[in-house]
Design a protein around this nucleic acid. Structure first.
Lengths: 220, 220
DNA sequence: TGATGTGAATAACTTCACAGCG
DNA sequence: CGCTGTGAAGTTATTCACATCA
Protein backbone atom coordinates (compact mmCIF):
# COMPACT_ATOMS: atom_id res chain seq x y z
CA UNK A 1 0.00 0.00 0.00
CA UNK A 2 2.97 2.35 0.44
CA UNK A 3 5.44 2.22 -2.43
CA UNK A 4 6.25 3.50 -5.90
CA UNK A 5 3.24 5.69 -6.59
CA UNK A 6 3.20 6.54 -10.31
CA UNK A 7 3.40 10.24 -11.10
CA UNK A 8 0.21 9.90 -13.13
CA UNK A 9 -1.59 9.02 -9.95
CA UNK A 10 -0.21 12.07 -8.17
CA UNK A 11 -1.28 14.32 -11.00
CA UNK A 12 -4.75 12.87 -11.00
CA UNK A 13 -5.00 13.47 -7.28
CA UNK A 14 -4.45 17.15 -7.98
CA UNK A 15 -7.18 17.01 -10.61
CA UNK A 16 -9.57 15.29 -8.23
CA UNK A 17 -8.79 17.98 -5.71
CA UNK A 18 -9.75 20.71 -8.11
CA UNK A 19 -13.07 19.04 -8.88
CA UNK A 20 -13.72 18.41 -5.22
CA UNK A 21 -13.18 22.06 -4.40
CA UNK A 22 -15.69 23.04 -7.05
CA UNK A 23 -18.16 20.55 -5.63
CA UNK A 24 -17.53 21.89 -2.17
CA UNK A 25 -18.32 25.40 -3.34
CA UNK A 26 -21.60 24.04 -4.69
CA UNK A 27 -22.36 22.61 -1.26
CA UNK A 28 -22.09 19.01 -2.42
CA UNK A 29 -21.22 16.89 0.61
CA UNK A 30 -21.02 13.34 -0.70
CA UNK A 31 -19.68 12.19 -4.06
CA UNK A 32 -19.25 8.80 -5.70
CA UNK A 33 -16.20 7.87 -7.73
CA UNK A 34 -18.45 7.77 -10.77
CA UNK A 35 -19.81 11.29 -10.32
CA UNK A 36 -16.34 12.61 -9.55
CA UNK A 37 -15.04 11.50 -12.94
CA UNK A 38 -17.72 13.36 -14.88
CA UNK A 39 -15.36 16.25 -15.45
CA UNK A 40 -12.10 14.36 -15.51
CA UNK A 41 -10.55 12.04 -18.04
CA UNK A 42 -10.43 9.04 -15.73
CA UNK A 43 -12.56 6.04 -14.86
CA UNK A 44 -14.27 5.47 -11.51
CA UNK A 45 -12.08 2.44 -10.94
CA UNK A 46 -9.07 4.66 -11.52
CA UNK A 47 -10.19 7.06 -8.84
CA UNK A 48 -10.65 4.26 -6.34
CA UNK A 49 -7.29 2.70 -7.20
CA UNK A 50 -5.53 6.04 -6.93
CA UNK A 51 -7.01 6.71 -3.54
CA UNK A 52 -6.37 3.17 -2.38
CA UNK A 53 -2.66 3.88 -2.61
CA UNK A 54 -3.02 6.11 0.41
CA UNK A 55 -5.81 4.65 2.49
CA UNK A 56 -9.51 3.99 2.66
CA UNK A 57 -11.35 7.26 2.46
CA UNK A 58 -14.82 6.24 1.28
CA UNK A 59 -17.88 4.60 2.71
CA UNK A 60 -19.13 1.53 0.80
CA UNK A 61 -22.66 2.04 -0.45
CA UNK A 62 -22.39 5.78 0.04
CA UNK A 63 -19.35 7.42 -1.51
CA UNK A 64 -16.76 9.92 -0.33
CA UNK A 65 -17.22 12.90 1.94
CA UNK A 66 -16.16 15.83 -0.21
CA UNK A 67 -14.79 17.76 2.72
CA UNK A 68 -12.86 14.83 4.13
CA UNK A 69 -11.46 13.83 0.77
CA UNK A 70 -10.23 17.36 0.13
CA UNK A 71 -8.40 17.28 3.42
CA UNK A 72 -6.90 13.88 2.68
CA UNK A 73 -5.61 14.83 -0.75
CA UNK A 74 -4.24 18.13 0.50
CA UNK A 75 -2.41 16.19 3.14
CA UNK A 76 -1.08 13.65 0.65
CA UNK A 77 0.19 16.33 -1.72
CA UNK A 78 1.57 18.42 1.10
CA UNK A 79 -0.62 21.42 0.40
CA UNK A 80 -1.73 21.97 3.97
CA UNK A 81 0.56 24.92 4.45
CA UNK A 82 1.60 27.58 1.94
CA UNK A 83 4.66 26.63 -0.07
CA UNK A 84 7.14 29.31 -0.97
CA UNK A 85 8.41 29.25 -4.53
CA UNK A 86 11.37 30.90 -6.25
CA UNK A 87 11.01 32.19 -9.79
CA UNK A 88 14.12 32.50 -11.95
CA UNK A 89 13.86 34.50 -15.15
CA UNK A 90 11.61 37.56 -14.99
CA UNK A 91 10.87 37.87 -18.69
CA UNK A 92 7.46 37.78 -20.27
CA UNK A 93 6.65 34.23 -19.26
CA UNK A 94 8.04 34.64 -15.78
CA UNK A 95 6.03 37.82 -15.25
CA UNK A 96 2.91 36.10 -16.52
CA UNK A 97 3.39 33.27 -14.04
CA UNK A 98 4.04 35.77 -11.26
CA UNK A 99 0.69 37.40 -11.99
CA UNK A 100 -1.08 34.07 -12.26
CA UNK A 101 -3.34 33.68 -9.29
CA UNK A 102 -3.82 29.99 -9.87
CA UNK A 103 -0.69 29.29 -7.87
CA UNK A 104 -1.66 31.49 -4.96
CA UNK A 105 -5.10 29.95 -4.86
CA UNK A 106 -3.72 26.49 -4.42
CA UNK A 107 -1.18 26.93 -1.73
CA UNK A 108 1.84 28.41 -3.45
CA UNK A 109 3.39 31.82 -3.10
CA UNK A 110 6.11 33.07 -5.38
CA UNK A 111 8.30 34.82 -2.88
CA UNK A 112 11.73 35.18 -4.45
CA UNK A 113 12.61 36.51 -7.89
CA UNK A 114 15.87 36.21 -9.79
CA UNK A 115 17.23 37.44 -13.08
CA UNK A 116 20.66 38.00 -14.60
CA UNK A 117 19.80 41.24 -16.37
CA UNK A 118 21.41 44.20 -14.56
CA UNK A 119 18.55 46.41 -15.71
CA UNK A 120 16.08 44.23 -13.86
CA UNK A 121 18.07 43.41 -10.75
CA UNK A 122 16.95 45.58 -7.87
CA UNK A 123 13.62 46.46 -9.45
CA UNK A 124 10.48 45.51 -7.61
CA UNK A 125 7.44 43.67 -8.92
CA UNK A 126 4.45 43.44 -6.61
CA UNK A 127 6.53 44.07 -3.48
CA UNK A 128 9.23 41.61 -4.47
CA UNK A 129 12.73 42.70 -5.31
CA UNK A 130 14.42 41.01 -8.23
CA UNK A 131 17.71 39.53 -7.08
CA UNK A 132 20.81 38.60 -9.04
CA UNK A 133 20.91 34.93 -10.04
CA UNK A 134 24.34 34.86 -8.47
CA UNK A 135 22.64 35.24 -5.10
CA UNK A 136 20.30 32.26 -5.55
CA UNK A 137 22.19 30.08 -3.14
CA UNK A 138 22.43 32.69 -0.44
CA UNK A 139 18.80 33.78 -0.59
CA UNK A 140 17.20 30.37 -0.96
CA UNK A 141 19.33 28.78 1.74
CA UNK A 142 18.42 31.52 4.16
CA UNK A 143 14.72 31.34 3.39
CA UNK A 144 14.66 27.56 3.13
CA UNK A 145 12.80 27.62 -0.18
CA UNK A 146 12.54 24.18 -1.75
CA UNK A 147 10.56 24.78 -4.96
CA UNK A 148 11.70 26.76 -7.99
CA UNK A 149 10.32 27.66 -11.38
CA UNK A 150 12.72 28.21 -14.27
CA UNK A 151 11.63 30.63 -17.00
CA UNK A 152 14.98 31.59 -18.47
CA UNK A 153 16.14 31.07 -22.06
CA UNK A 154 17.29 27.57 -22.94
CA UNK A 155 20.91 28.65 -23.10
CA UNK A 156 20.95 29.63 -19.41
CA UNK A 157 18.74 26.89 -18.05
CA UNK A 158 21.44 24.40 -17.07
CA UNK A 159 23.46 27.02 -15.24
CA UNK A 160 20.39 28.14 -13.33
CA UNK A 161 19.47 24.55 -12.53
CA UNK A 162 22.96 23.99 -11.14
CA UNK A 163 22.61 27.03 -8.93
CA UNK A 164 19.22 25.91 -7.70
CA UNK A 165 20.50 22.46 -6.86
CA UNK A 166 23.41 23.98 -4.99
CA UNK A 167 20.91 26.10 -3.08
CA UNK A 168 19.14 23.00 -1.83
CA UNK A 169 16.11 23.19 -4.09
CA UNK A 170 14.26 19.87 -4.14
CA UNK A 171 11.66 20.41 -6.84
CA UNK A 172 11.92 22.29 -10.14
CA UNK A 173 9.24 23.23 -12.62
CA UNK A 174 11.13 24.04 -15.81
CA UNK A 175 9.76 25.97 -18.74
CA UNK A 176 13.04 26.25 -20.60
CA UNK A 177 13.03 24.11 -23.74
CA UNK A 178 16.20 22.30 -22.84
CA UNK A 179 17.33 19.05 -21.29
CA UNK A 180 18.52 19.58 -17.74
CA UNK A 181 21.01 17.41 -16.00
CA UNK A 182 20.01 17.10 -12.36
CA UNK A 183 21.29 14.89 -9.55
CA UNK A 184 19.12 12.14 -8.14
CA UNK A 185 16.96 13.32 -5.31
CA UNK A 186 15.92 16.49 -7.08
CA UNK A 187 12.66 16.24 -8.98
CA UNK A 188 12.27 18.14 -12.21
CA UNK A 189 9.26 18.53 -14.42
CA UNK A 190 9.78 20.18 -17.78
CA UNK A 191 6.88 21.83 -19.54
CA UNK A 192 7.98 22.49 -23.08
CA UNK A 193 5.25 24.37 -24.86
CA UNK A 194 6.89 24.16 -28.26
CA UNK A 195 7.15 20.38 -27.96
CA UNK A 196 3.51 20.16 -26.96
CA UNK A 197 2.48 22.17 -29.97
CA UNK A 198 4.70 20.23 -32.34
CA UNK A 199 3.38 16.92 -31.13
CA UNK A 200 -0.19 18.12 -31.52
CA UNK A 201 0.52 19.10 -35.10
CA UNK A 202 0.86 15.40 -35.83
CA UNK A 203 -2.87 14.93 -35.42
CA UNK A 204 -3.68 17.39 -38.17
CA UNK A 205 -2.50 14.86 -40.69
CA UNK A 206 -3.07 11.60 -38.82
CA UNK A 207 -6.59 10.86 -37.80
CA UNK A 208 -6.13 7.63 -35.87
CA UNK A 209 -7.43 8.62 -32.49
CA UNK A 210 -5.33 8.47 -29.36
CA UNK A 211 -6.88 7.60 -26.04
CA UNK A 212 -7.20 10.11 -23.26
CA UNK A 213 -4.21 10.78 -21.04
CA UNK A 214 -2.93 13.85 -19.16
CA UNK A 215 -0.09 16.43 -19.25
CA UNK A 216 3.29 14.69 -18.75
CA UNK A 217 6.53 15.42 -17.03
CA UNK A 218 10.28 15.04 -17.20
CA UNK A 219 10.71 13.66 -13.74
CA UNK A 220 14.10 12.66 -12.40
CA UNK B 1 3.50 -0.83 -38.59
CA UNK B 2 0.76 1.76 -39.11
CA UNK B 3 -1.74 1.99 -36.27
CA UNK B 4 -2.47 3.57 -32.90
CA UNK B 5 0.75 5.43 -32.25
CA UNK B 6 0.87 6.40 -28.57
CA UNK B 7 1.04 10.12 -27.89
CA UNK B 8 4.14 9.52 -25.82
CA UNK B 9 5.88 8.37 -28.96
CA UNK B 10 4.81 11.48 -30.84
CA UNK B 11 6.08 13.71 -28.08
CA UNK B 12 9.40 11.92 -28.00
CA UNK B 13 9.74 12.37 -31.75
CA UNK B 14 9.52 16.12 -31.16
CA UNK B 15 12.22 15.80 -28.52
CA UNK B 16 14.44 13.78 -30.83
CA UNK B 17 13.93 16.45 -33.44
CA UNK B 18 15.13 19.17 -31.12
CA UNK B 19 18.29 17.22 -30.28
CA UNK B 20 18.88 16.40 -33.91
CA UNK B 21 18.70 20.06 -34.85
CA UNK B 22 21.27 20.90 -32.22
CA UNK B 23 23.50 18.15 -33.54
CA UNK B 24 23.02 19.40 -37.06
CA UNK B 25 24.12 22.88 -36.00
CA UNK B 26 27.25 21.26 -34.57
CA UNK B 27 27.88 19.65 -37.96
CA UNK B 28 27.29 16.13 -36.68
CA UNK B 29 26.26 13.99 -39.63
CA UNK B 30 25.69 10.52 -38.20
CA UNK B 31 24.23 9.61 -34.83
CA UNK B 32 23.45 6.35 -33.08
CA UNK B 33 20.32 5.77 -31.04
CA UNK B 34 22.52 5.57 -27.98
CA UNK B 35 24.23 8.92 -28.54
CA UNK B 36 20.93 10.53 -29.37
CA UNK B 37 19.52 9.68 -25.96
CA UNK B 38 22.35 11.31 -24.07
CA UNK B 39 20.29 14.45 -23.65
CA UNK B 40 16.85 12.90 -23.53
CA UNK B 41 15.09 10.83 -20.93
CA UNK B 42 14.66 7.76 -23.11
CA UNK B 43 16.50 4.54 -23.87
CA UNK B 44 18.16 3.69 -27.17
CA UNK B 45 15.67 0.86 -27.67
CA UNK B 46 12.90 3.37 -27.17
CA UNK B 47 14.27 5.56 -29.93
CA UNK B 48 14.45 2.64 -32.34
CA UNK B 49 10.96 1.45 -31.45
CA UNK B 50 9.52 4.93 -31.85
CA UNK B 51 11.09 5.35 -35.25
CA UNK B 52 10.12 1.84 -36.32
CA UNK B 53 6.48 2.90 -36.13
CA UNK B 54 7.07 4.99 -39.22
CA UNK B 55 9.72 3.23 -41.25
CA UNK B 56 13.36 2.22 -41.36
CA UNK B 57 15.50 5.29 -41.27
CA UNK B 58 18.83 4.00 -40.06
CA UNK B 59 21.75 2.03 -41.39
CA UNK B 60 22.69 -1.08 -39.39
CA UNK B 61 26.23 -0.87 -38.11
CA UNK B 62 26.34 2.86 -38.70
CA UNK B 63 23.45 4.82 -37.26
CA UNK B 64 21.12 7.52 -38.50
CA UNK B 65 21.88 10.36 -40.86
CA UNK B 66 21.10 13.46 -38.83
CA UNK B 67 19.92 15.39 -41.82
CA UNK B 68 17.74 12.63 -43.14
CA UNK B 69 16.21 11.87 -39.76
CA UNK B 70 15.34 15.52 -39.25
CA UNK B 71 13.51 15.51 -42.56
CA UNK B 72 11.69 12.29 -41.71
CA UNK B 73 10.50 13.46 -38.31
CA UNK B 74 9.44 16.84 -39.68
CA UNK B 75 7.46 15.00 -42.28
CA UNK B 76 5.86 12.68 -39.71
CA UNK B 77 4.85 15.54 -37.43
CA UNK B 78 3.69 17.67 -40.32
CA UNK B 79 6.16 20.46 -39.69
CA UNK B 80 7.32 20.82 -43.26
CA UNK B 81 5.30 23.96 -43.87
CA UNK B 82 4.51 26.76 -41.42
CA UNK B 83 1.37 26.16 -39.41
CA UNK B 84 -0.86 29.09 -38.58
CA UNK B 85 -2.13 29.25 -35.02
CA UNK B 86 -4.92 31.22 -33.36
CA UNK B 87 -4.46 32.59 -29.86
CA UNK B 88 -7.52 33.25 -27.73
CA UNK B 89 -7.07 35.32 -24.60
CA UNK B 90 -4.57 38.15 -24.82
CA UNK B 91 -3.80 38.51 -21.14
CA UNK B 92 -0.41 38.14 -19.52
CA UNK B 93 0.08 34.50 -20.43
CA UNK B 94 -1.28 34.95 -23.94
CA UNK B 95 1.03 37.90 -24.55
CA UNK B 96 3.97 35.94 -23.22
CA UNK B 97 3.23 33.09 -25.62
CA UNK B 98 2.83 35.56 -28.46
CA UNK B 99 6.30 36.89 -27.77
CA UNK B 100 7.76 33.42 -27.41
CA UNK B 101 9.99 32.74 -30.35
CA UNK B 102 10.10 29.05 -29.71
CA UNK B 103 6.93 28.56 -31.69
CA UNK B 104 8.09 30.57 -34.66
CA UNK B 105 11.36 28.73 -34.69
CA UNK B 106 9.67 25.38 -35.04
CA UNK B 107 7.18 25.96 -37.73
CA UNK B 108 4.32 27.79 -36.06
CA UNK B 109 3.09 31.31 -36.52
CA UNK B 110 0.51 32.87 -34.28
CA UNK B 111 -1.50 34.75 -36.84
CA UNK B 112 -4.89 35.48 -35.30
CA UNK B 113 -5.63 37.00 -31.90
CA UNK B 114 -8.92 37.05 -30.00
CA UNK B 115 -10.18 38.51 -26.75
CA UNK B 116 -13.53 39.42 -25.26
CA UNK B 117 -12.38 42.62 -23.59
CA UNK B 118 -13.69 45.66 -25.52
CA UNK B 119 -10.64 47.63 -24.42
CA UNK B 120 -8.39 45.17 -26.19
CA UNK B 121 -10.44 44.45 -29.28
CA UNK B 122 -9.14 46.41 -32.22
CA UNK B 123 -5.74 47.03 -30.66
CA UNK B 124 -2.70 45.75 -32.45
CA UNK B 125 0.15 43.68 -31.09
CA UNK B 126 3.12 43.10 -33.36
CA UNK B 127 1.13 43.81 -36.54
CA UNK B 128 -1.79 41.63 -35.46
CA UNK B 129 -5.17 43.09 -34.67
CA UNK B 130 -7.03 41.64 -31.71
CA UNK B 131 -10.45 40.44 -32.83
CA UNK B 132 -13.62 39.86 -30.85
CA UNK B 133 -14.05 36.25 -29.74
CA UNK B 134 -17.49 36.45 -31.33
CA UNK B 135 -15.74 36.55 -34.68
CA UNK B 136 -13.70 33.41 -34.14
CA UNK B 137 -15.78 31.33 -36.49
CA UNK B 138 -15.77 33.86 -39.28
CA UNK B 139 -12.06 34.62 -39.13
CA UNK B 140 -10.77 31.08 -38.65
CA UNK B 141 -13.03 29.61 -41.33
CA UNK B 142 -11.87 32.18 -43.83
CA UNK B 143 -8.21 31.69 -43.02
CA UNK B 144 -8.49 27.93 -42.65
CA UNK B 145 -6.65 27.92 -39.33
CA UNK B 146 -6.71 24.51 -37.66
CA UNK B 147 -4.69 25.02 -34.46
CA UNK B 148 -5.65 27.19 -31.49
CA UNK B 149 -4.17 28.07 -28.12
CA UNK B 150 -6.52 28.93 -25.26
CA UNK B 151 -5.22 31.32 -22.62
CA UNK B 152 -8.46 32.63 -21.19
CA UNK B 153 -9.65 32.34 -17.57
CA UNK B 154 -11.13 28.99 -16.59
CA UNK B 155 -14.63 30.42 -16.47
CA UNK B 156 -14.59 31.27 -20.19
CA UNK B 157 -12.66 28.29 -21.46
CA UNK B 158 -15.57 26.03 -22.38
CA UNK B 159 -17.34 28.77 -24.29
CA UNK B 160 -14.16 29.54 -26.21
CA UNK B 161 -13.59 25.86 -26.91
CA UNK B 162 -17.11 25.57 -28.31
CA UNK B 163 -16.49 28.50 -30.60
CA UNK B 164 -13.21 27.03 -31.77
CA UNK B 165 -14.80 23.70 -32.51
CA UNK B 166 -17.57 25.43 -34.44
CA UNK B 167 -14.89 27.23 -36.41
CA UNK B 168 -13.40 23.97 -37.56
CA UNK B 169 -10.37 23.93 -35.30
CA UNK B 170 -8.83 20.47 -35.15
CA UNK B 171 -6.20 20.85 -32.46
CA UNK B 172 -6.29 22.85 -29.22
CA UNK B 173 -3.54 23.62 -26.75
CA UNK B 174 -5.35 24.67 -23.60
CA UNK B 175 -3.79 26.57 -20.70
CA UNK B 176 -7.03 27.20 -18.87
CA UNK B 177 -7.21 25.17 -15.66
CA UNK B 178 -10.54 23.62 -16.50
CA UNK B 179 -11.97 20.45 -17.97
CA UNK B 180 -13.10 20.99 -21.55
CA UNK B 181 -15.78 18.99 -23.23
CA UNK B 182 -14.83 18.49 -26.85
CA UNK B 183 -16.30 16.34 -29.60
CA UNK B 184 -14.42 13.35 -30.93
CA UNK B 185 -12.15 14.24 -33.79
CA UNK B 186 -10.81 17.34 -32.11
CA UNK B 187 -7.59 16.86 -30.20
CA UNK B 188 -7.02 18.80 -27.02
CA UNK B 189 -4.00 18.99 -24.82
CA UNK B 190 -4.35 20.78 -21.51
CA UNK B 191 -1.32 22.20 -19.78
CA UNK B 192 -2.34 23.08 -16.27
CA UNK B 193 0.57 24.73 -14.54
CA UNK B 194 -1.07 24.79 -11.14
CA UNK B 195 -1.71 21.06 -11.33
CA UNK B 196 1.90 20.47 -12.32
CA UNK B 197 3.15 22.46 -9.37
CA UNK B 198 0.78 20.81 -6.95
CA UNK B 199 1.74 17.35 -8.06
CA UNK B 200 5.41 18.24 -7.72
CA UNK B 201 4.83 19.38 -4.16
CA UNK B 202 4.14 15.75 -3.33
CA UNK B 203 7.80 14.93 -3.75
CA UNK B 204 8.85 17.37 -1.06
CA UNK B 205 7.45 15.02 1.53
CA UNK B 206 7.69 11.67 -0.24
CA UNK B 207 11.14 10.59 -1.23
CA UNK B 208 10.38 7.34 -3.06
CA UNK B 209 11.76 8.13 -6.47
CA UNK B 210 9.64 8.11 -9.56
CA UNK B 211 11.11 6.99 -12.86
CA UNK B 212 11.66 9.38 -15.69
CA UNK B 213 8.72 10.23 -17.92
CA UNK B 214 7.72 13.32 -19.92
CA UNK B 215 5.11 16.18 -19.90
CA UNK B 216 1.60 14.78 -20.41
CA UNK B 217 -1.58 15.75 -22.13
CA UNK B 218 -5.36 15.68 -21.95
CA UNK B 219 -5.87 14.24 -25.37
CA UNK B 220 -9.34 13.52 -26.69
C1' DT C 1 32.68 -5.19 -36.15
C1' DG C 2 28.81 -2.28 -34.70
C1' DA C 3 24.37 -0.50 -34.67
C1' DT C 4 19.80 -1.22 -36.55
C1' DG C 5 15.20 -3.40 -36.45
C1' DT C 6 12.21 -6.49 -34.08
C1' DG C 7 9.98 -10.48 -31.85
C1' DA C 8 9.84 -11.98 -27.10
C1' DA C 9 9.86 -10.93 -22.28
C1' DT C 10 9.07 -7.85 -18.84
C1' DA C 11 7.09 -4.18 -16.43
C1' DA C 12 3.60 -0.74 -15.70
C1' DC C 13 -0.77 0.85 -15.84
C1' DT C 14 -5.85 0.43 -16.39
C1' DT C 15 -10.12 -1.87 -16.36
C1' DC C 16 -12.99 -5.54 -14.85
C1' DA C 17 -15.79 -7.74 -11.69
C1' DC C 18 -17.21 -8.93 -7.49
C1' DA C 19 -16.94 -9.67 -2.42
C1' DG C 20 -18.19 -7.14 1.44
C1' DC C 21 -19.96 -3.64 4.08
C1' DG C 22 -22.90 0.31 5.44
C1' DC D 1 -29.47 -1.92 -2.57
C1' DG D 2 -25.31 0.87 -3.81
C1' DC D 3 -20.73 1.97 -3.83
C1' DT D 4 -16.23 1.10 -2.08
C1' DG D 5 -11.95 -1.53 -2.05
C1' DT D 6 -9.26 -4.94 -4.37
C1' DG D 7 -7.45 -9.21 -6.45
C1' DA D 8 -7.38 -10.81 -11.08
C1' DA D 9 -7.46 -10.08 -15.91
C1' DG D 10 -6.47 -7.35 -19.63
C1' DT D 11 -4.06 -3.89 -22.06
C1' DT D 12 -0.43 -0.88 -23.18
C1' DA D 13 4.27 0.57 -23.02
C1' DT D 14 9.17 -0.34 -22.24
C1' DT D 15 13.24 -3.09 -22.16
C1' DC D 16 15.83 -7.06 -23.56
C1' DA D 17 18.40 -9.65 -26.65
C1' DC D 18 19.69 -11.16 -30.85
C1' DA D 19 19.38 -12.04 -35.88
C1' DT D 20 20.68 -9.24 -39.60
C1' DC D 21 22.95 -6.43 -42.60
C1' DA D 22 26.37 -2.54 -44.15
Amino acid sequence: MKQAIPHETIKRLALYLRSLRQLSRKRVEIISSEKLTEHIHASPAQVRKDLACFGEFGTPGVGYSVKKLIAEIESILGLKEKQEVALVGIGKLGSALLAYLGFEKFGFRISALFDNNPEKIGKKISELKIEDVARIKEVLRRRKIKIAIITVPAANAQEVADRLVAAGIKVILNFAPHYLNIPKGVIINTIDMAIELQSLAYYLTHKEQSRASSTTTNLT
